[in-house]
Amino acid sequence: MSETGRDQSRRQRYLQGAVAIIRGTDISATFKGMRMFDGFSLFLALGWALFGLLWIFVPFAIFGIKGLLREILAEQKQTNEILRRAHGVSPPLDMPESQPFRPVRYP
């Protein structure tokens, strides 16, 4: 059978399967011998399913973490204040203002 004949045969089986689905009949005989669910297509389907689940659940995870981050930040500030009191360290009051970096011409 030539390559075009094989493609026509495959197309006919697909069309027969579509008709069988519409009629509600058994389609297992229609697709016999066709490799519809080989390893690669199964791998792609699982990959897309995982991507879809991540696409749905990641925004909820991000919004759920916001409150936890606020709590951690408040505890960190409290810990810094306790350490500052315990060690008597205070930030220098006369810190020079930061200047933007300006490269000097090489002599």
Rank of each mutant, 00 (worst) to 15 (best):
E81M: 10
I65G: 06
F31W: 10
P59S: 08
I72W: 00
I72S: 03
I22H: 02
G39A: 02
I65H: 14
W55Y: 12
P59Q: 07
K32Q: 08
Q76F: 06
A86D: 05
F40V: 13
L53T: 09
R85K: 03
L83I: 14
V19S: 08
G64K: 01
Q12R: 04
I22N: 05
D38T: 02
R84L: 05
M34S: 00
R85D: 02
D38H: 07
G64Y: 04
A86H: 04
T30A: 05
G33N: 12
K77L: 08
T25F: 00
R10S: 11
R13W: 06
Q76K: 05
E75N: 15
L73D: 13
L54H: 05
E71N: 05
N80A: 15
Q16R: 07
D7N: 01
V58Q: 10
S41T: 14
L15M: 09
G47F: 11
A29I: 02
D26W: 10
F31T: 11
Q8S: 09
F43A: 14
Y14V: 03
F37L: 01
S41D: 01
L44I: 15
E81N: 03
L15Y: 10
G39R: 14
G64L: 13
K66Q: 13
G47V: 12
S41E: 03
V58N: 01
G39C: 11
W55M: 13
M34H: 05
D7I: 11
F60E: 10
R70Y: 08
G33V: 08
K77Q: 13
L83P: 13
L68Y: 12
A86K: 10
I56H: 04
F40M: 01
I65Q: 14
L46F: 07
A49F: 07
G17E: 07
I62R: 08
V58T: 09
R13E: 02
G24I: 08
Y14F: 15
I72P: 00
F63D: 00
F51G: 04
V58F: 03
E81A: 15
Y14Q: 11
K77P: 10
A61T: 09
I22S: 05
Q12E: 00
L44A: 15
L44T: 13
L50A: 07
W48V: 08
L46E: 06
F40C: 10
Q76S: 11
D26F: 07
K66M: 13
A29S: 11
W55H: 08
L42A: 11
G33S: 06
L54M: 09
R85P: 00
M34N: 00
Q16W: 01
R84K: 15
L69Y: 10
I65N: 14
K66E: 05
Y14D: 03
I21M: 12
L42Y: 07
R23K: 15
R85V: 01
D38E: 08
R13M: 12
